[in-house]
Design a protein around this nucleic acid. Structure first.
Lengths: 134, 134
DNA sequence: TCCATCGGTATCCAAAAGATACTATGTGAC
DNA sequence: GTCACATAGTATCTTTTGGATACCGATGGA
């Protein structure tokens, strides 16, 4: 399944997302987050300030946005820049690593947009069967 | 905002993941789930039975796996087949729609595997700054 | 003076995740 | 006969998380 990959001459452990103790699980864990995905998608192409982000990503609360950004920053996916303007300005932007990921995330988001109707139809069919059966 | 969408006609794509009331949010919500992603990835290429899945996707509990599969089935991404063998056999497989998505998921998982070291390094750097600064 | 904006933190509560135990049915071992 | 195991889940309980709300200091405008 996973051939041993070598990174910088070092023989790395063959990362396996299915293994409970694999560090890739951490990544998956962090990225399997609605808000993180939306933030990454929103940050594609331009830096955005905190409250702007809060307005654009509808439905996110300050606390959750704050936490999400902090995690993304810790993971090296987002860079936080503080400008000492009069009300302090904080700008968030994708790092190269984050930009790289955001492309994958974008594929995800667009898949959702393309296939939402099929999913809604499947849900309706499923609920119909359940409702009739019960 | 998305008043003009036609279900049958496949006209434009008025869907916007950033809008709180957009149905794509439902998809994102469902898919932004660690276990769902792992299940989809595991189901690529072959049908798997419940307990086998449970063993393969390390760390998942029965309850969560059961819930996850039920949701994926409702979304039309996974098909559930019951064989009336002696201890009943239940097989889960990707639907065409699910397979389509699984390819995107796979890109995600492989991104994680490729970039895990960069992320771990970023985390270490971040934690070092935090530890030293505070 | 009062209220707004900036970028957050603190607090509380509801919802979800996770661990554990249990169900039913049937097989093989002892 | 009955003990233990397998199948595929459900039921229950606890812990963790997510989300809503309130609040913070500083500043500027009506």
């Amino acid at each position: 399944m996973q051939d041993g990959q070598r990174i910088m001459g070092r023989v790395a452990m063959p990362y396996d997302v299915f293994a409970a103790n694999c560090p890739t699980r951490l990544v998956l864990d962090r990225l399997a987050d609605k808000w993180a995905l939306l933030v990454l998608e929103r940050l594609r192409g331009e830096a955005v300030r905190f409250n702007q982000l809060r307005r654009d990503v509808e439905g996110v609360s300050q606390k959750v946005l704050s936490q999400t950004l902090k995690r993304l920053e810790r993971d090296g996916l987002v860079a936080r820049t503080v400008y000492p303007t009069v009300p302090v300005t904080v700008e968030y932007a994708l790092t190269p690593l984050g930009l790289n990921l955001a492309d994958t995330v974008s594929a995800f988001a667009h898949w959702a947009e393309r296939n939402i109707e099929a999913i809604l139809a499947a849900q309706a069919a499923y609920d119909g069967r359940e409702g009739a059966g019960a």
